[in-house]
Amino acid sequence: MEKLYIEPTKGTPEINFDPAQNLLILKGQSYPENAFKFYEPIFHWVDAYLEEVKEEVTIEINLPYINTSSSKCLMMLLDKFDEAYNQGKKITLNWYYDEENESELECAEEFQEDLTIPFNLFLVQED
Protein backbone atom coordinates (compact mmCIF):
# COMPACT_ATOMS: atom_id res chain seq x y z
CA MET A 1 0.00 0.00 0.00
CA GLU A 2 1.34 3.40 -0.95
CA LYS A 3 1.75 6.22 1.44
CA LEU A 4 -0.77 9.06 1.15
CA TYR A 5 0.74 12.48 1.39
CA ILE A 6 -1.02 15.76 0.63
CA GLU A 7 0.86 18.99 1.17
CA PRO A 8 -0.85 21.56 3.32
CA THR A 9 -2.31 24.71 1.76
CA LYS A 10 -3.89 27.77 3.34
CA GLY A 11 -7.29 26.08 3.51
CA THR A 12 -6.41 22.39 3.65
CA PRO A 13 -4.49 20.38 6.24
CA GLU A 14 -1.38 18.28 5.73
CA ILE A 15 -2.29 14.65 5.20
CA ASN A 16 0.46 12.18 6.02
CA PHE A 17 -0.91 8.65 6.14
CA ASP A 18 1.95 6.19 6.40
CA PRO A 19 0.90 2.54 6.15
CA ALA A 20 4.45 1.34 6.90
CA GLN A 21 4.25 2.78 10.41
CA ASN A 22 0.50 2.60 10.61
CA LEU A 23 0.57 6.23 11.61
CA LEU A 24 -2.03 8.55 10.10
CA ILE A 25 -1.43 12.27 10.66
CA LEU A 26 -3.86 15.07 9.84
CA LYS A 27 -2.51 18.47 10.72
CA GLY A 28 -3.61 22.01 9.89
CA GLN A 29 -6.62 24.13 9.12
CA SER A 30 -9.42 22.74 7.00
CA TYR A 31 -11.81 25.04 5.17
CA PRO A 32 -11.58 24.19 1.50
CA GLU A 33 -14.07 25.62 -0.95
CA ASN A 34 -15.24 22.11 -1.70
CA ALA A 35 -14.59 19.90 1.29
CA PHE A 36 -15.99 16.75 -0.30
CA LYS A 37 -13.68 17.05 -3.23
CA PHE A 38 -10.70 17.35 -0.89
CA TYR A 39 -11.67 14.47 1.39
CA GLU A 40 -12.98 12.05 -1.24
CA PRO A 41 -9.57 10.60 -2.21
CA ILE A 42 -8.78 10.27 1.48
CA PHE A 43 -11.97 8.25 2.00
CA HIS A 44 -10.99 5.87 -0.79
CA TRP A 45 -7.48 5.46 0.57
CA VAL A 46 -8.78 4.79 4.08
CA ASP A 47 -11.33 2.25 2.80
CA ALA A 48 -8.59 0.29 1.07
CA TYR A 49 -6.24 0.67 4.02
CA LEU A 50 -8.72 -0.54 6.60
CA GLU A 51 -9.41 -3.62 4.54
CA GLU A 52 -5.87 -4.83 4.65
CA VAL A 53 -4.44 -3.44 7.89
CA LYS A 54 -3.68 -5.97 10.61
CA GLU A 55 -1.54 -4.00 13.01
CA GLU A 56 -2.50 -1.36 15.49
CA VAL A 57 -3.29 1.98 13.90
CA THR A 58 -2.60 5.38 15.43
CA ILE A 59 -4.39 8.48 14.17
CA GLU A 60 -3.02 11.88 15.13
CA ILE A 61 -5.12 14.95 14.59
CA ASN A 62 -4.28 18.61 15.16
CA LEU A 63 -6.88 20.97 13.70
CA PRO A 64 -6.71 24.63 14.72
CA TYR A 65 -9.77 25.32 12.59
CA ILE A 66 -12.25 23.18 10.73
CA ASN A 67 -15.31 24.54 8.95
CA THR A 68 -18.71 22.91 9.00
CA SER A 69 -18.47 20.99 5.75
CA SER A 70 -14.95 19.79 6.57
CA SER A 71 -16.12 18.62 9.96
CA LYS A 72 -18.86 16.63 8.26
CA CYS A 73 -16.24 15.02 6.06
CA LEU A 74 -13.95 14.36 9.00
CA MET A 75 -16.85 12.79 10.81
CA MET A 76 -17.46 10.52 7.84
CA LEU A 77 -13.79 9.64 7.84
CA LEU A 78 -13.62 8.91 11.55
CA ASP A 79 -16.85 6.89 11.27
CA LYS A 80 -14.98 4.55 8.97
CA PHE A 81 -12.36 3.97 11.70
CA ASP A 82 -15.10 3.66 14.29
CA GLU A 83 -16.73 0.95 12.26
CA ALA A 84 -13.44 -0.88 11.77
CA TYR A 85 -12.74 -0.58 15.50
CA ASN A 86 -16.09 -2.09 16.27
CA GLN A 87 -15.21 -4.95 13.95
CA GLY A 88 -12.12 -5.67 16.00
CA LYS A 89 -9.30 -3.55 14.49
CA LYS A 90 -6.96 -1.90 16.94
CA ILE A 91 -7.22 1.85 16.46
CA THR A 92 -6.24 4.77 18.70
CA LEU A 93 -7.01 8.42 18.06
CA ASN A 94 -4.78 11.11 19.57
CA TRP A 95 -6.20 14.60 19.27
CA TYR A 96 -3.90 17.53 19.98
CA TYR A 97 -5.27 20.93 20.88
CA ASP A 98 -4.06 24.31 22.03
CA GLU A 99 -5.65 25.63 25.16
CA GLU A 100 -5.66 29.19 23.89
CA ASN A 101 -7.71 28.23 20.87
CA GLU A 102 -10.95 27.37 22.65
CA SER A 103 -12.81 26.13 19.59
CA GLU A 104 -10.24 23.35 19.13
CA LEU A 105 -11.20 21.60 22.33
CA GLU A 106 -14.90 22.20 21.72
CA CYS A 107 -14.59 20.66 18.32
CA ALA A 108 -12.59 17.70 19.65
CA GLU A 109 -15.12 17.04 22.33
CA GLU A 110 -17.94 17.02 19.82
CA PHE A 111 -16.16 14.34 17.86
CA GLN A 112 -15.37 12.44 21.03
CA GLU A 113 -19.07 12.29 21.86
CA ASP A 114 -19.89 10.53 18.62
CA LEU A 115 -17.03 8.05 18.52
CA THR A 116 -16.30 4.79 20.32
CA ILE A 117 -12.61 4.36 19.40
CA PRO A 118 -10.05 5.13 22.13
CA PHE A 119 -9.85 8.92 21.99
CA ASN A 120 -6.95 10.70 23.76
CA LEU A 121 -6.90 14.45 24.14
CA PHE A 122 -3.46 16.03 24.44
CA LEU A 123 -2.73 19.59 25.34
CA VAL A 124 -0.02 20.99 23.09
CA GLN A 125 2.61 22.66 25.21
CA GLU A 126 4.09 25.93 24.15
CA ASP A 127 7.74 25.76 23.15
Binding site: Q29, P64, Y65, D98, E100, N101, E102, S103, E106
Partner: peptide, 11 residues
Protein backbone atom coordinates in the same frame (compact mmCIF):
# COMPACT_ATOMS: atom_id res chain seq x y z
CA UNK B 1 -9.18 33.79 12.59
CA UNK B 2 -6.87 36.58 13.56
CA UNK B 3 -4.94 37.88 16.54
CA UNK B 4 -1.30 37.16 17.19
CA UNK B 5 -1.51 33.40 16.74
CA UNK B 6 -4.08 33.45 13.98
CA UNK B 7 -6.53 31.51 16.15
CA UNK B 8 -10.32 31.63 16.03
CA UNK B 9 -12.04 34.56 17.74
CA UNK B 10 -13.76 32.18 20.15
CA UNK B 11 -16.79 32.12 22.35
Amino acid sequence: NGGEKDYSFGR
